[in-house]
Design a protein around this nucleic acid. Structure first.
Length: 259
DNA sequence: ATGGCATTTAAAAAATGA
């Protein structure tokens, strides 16, 4: 079972890139972030023709998340928002059970500029997320937290850490939130597979960041203790970032052993 | 130290991103 996450940065603007990658990578389950499309503008037909069905939560202009699965895999939707704030109108969370695994697809708030209300929103979102993930650990089910966390977990995950000290992606508060998840028993699958390697998932469009490999690692796949023993392989499809009209993120994927 | 890029919405320029 191959499971991937990809911040597409506009699902319609990037549709050719998304379809090309789907065909090449052939994942069973894909979580998408930053659809940047209202609910009715999700390219359902094209996704279908590519061999997938999907659930999604859109929003005009910004945010938006989706879960795609091969048509032979049933998708049972569990949540279409992160519980805990009825006034939160941003489409950043969708959760489903597929192949007996709980898949939590998330697009965590960016939080910049720090300090300010956007950073406070990020911290609040993290608080709600912590509650949800603690509930999931208690439920004794295989579960994955997957998506664009907008968190650089450690200085090793950024090209020039000194330039990011006051950035909302790297602030101690959010790094601690990520570290707390690991402490609770979630496994950072990519870092576990490649403990010593420089691995990035995002390269800015500016400054020739991709050709200089000046990146950051923001997109993560966390496994609960039930799933950890099934982790087989994984990686970042870095070359996709070099394609014409690509997102500024690259797809990240893992493979799980069948039970 | 500044600006450099790219999306959406909507018809120019603003908001957002990381």
């Amino acid at each position: 079972m191959k499971i991937a996450t990809y911040n597409v940065n506009g699902v319609n603007g990037r549709l050719p890139v998304l379809l090309k990658w789907l065909q090449e990578a052939d994942p069973d389950i894909v979580c998408l972030q930053e659809l940047k499309a209202p609910q009715e503008k999700f390219p359902e037909t094209s996704i279908h023709e590519a061999g997938y069905h999907a659930i999604w939560k859109g929003q005009k202009s910004w945010n938006g998340v989706a879960i795609l699965a091969k048509k032979n895999l049933e998708i049972t939707e569990v949540q279409r928002e992160l519980p805990g704030d009825e006034d939160d109108v941003q489409s950043r969370y969708i959760e489903a059970i597929i192949g007996q695994i709980v898949i939590c697809c998330l697009y965590l708030p960016n939080g910049n500029p720090f300090p300010g209300p956007k950073f406070e929103y990020k911290l609040d979102w993290l608080k709600r997320f912590k509650k949800r993930t603690n509930d999931l650990i208690k439920m004794d089910l295989p579960a994955i937290l997957i998506g664009d966390f907008n968190i650089i977990p450690t200085p090793f995950d950024v090209h020039k850490p000194e330039k990011w000290e006051d950035d909302a992606l790297f602030r101690p508060e959010v790094r601690k939130a990520f570290a707390d998840l690991l402490k609770k028993g979630w496994t950072d699958s990519i870092r576990t597979l490649f403990p010593e390697e420089k691995i990035y998932t995002f390269w800015d469009y500016l400054y020739k960041a991709y050709s200089r490999d000046a990146g950051i690692r923001l997109d993560h796949i966390l496994l609960n203790p039930y799933l950890k023993p099934r982790l087989q392989s994984g990686g970042v499809d870095k070359h996709v970032r070099g394609w014409e009209k690509s997102s500024d993120h690259a797809p990240v994927w893992i493979e799980l052993k069948e039970v």
